[in-house]
């Protein structure tokens, strides 16, 4: 499942990042999206994009497009 498809209030665990863009991948792992990491979707912005997630004890807003590259399991 992809992170962008979760609705607010759902938790999941990161499996991997699906992207061929190396920089993007490093960026995402640096921000904490590493396999096994727990992610909680706090809310989706009023217009449906981006979403607010919490991971490693901090709050991050992430665009739906970026979130669609993150594979998770519930």
């Amino acid at each position: 499942m992809k992170l962008n498809l979760l609705s607010s209030g759902q938790s999941a665990k990161v499996v991997k990042i699906n992207s061929k863009d190396k920089k993007f991948k490093i960026r995402m792992t640096d921000m904490g999206f590493v396999p096994g990491c727990a992610v909680y979707v706090k809310r989706v912005a009023p217009l449906g994009d981006p979403m607010q997630v919490s991971l490693h004890g901090y709050e991050l807003s992430i665009g739906k497009f970026e979130a669609s590259k993150i594979e998770v399991v519930i």
Binding site: F24, R27, M28, M31, P50, Q52, Y58, E59, L60, S61, I62, G63, F65, E66
Partner: peptide
Amino acid sequence: EQPVFLMELPG
């Protein structure tokens, strides 16, 4: 070429 949106939300 979508702009990347990743931003920490401070308290």
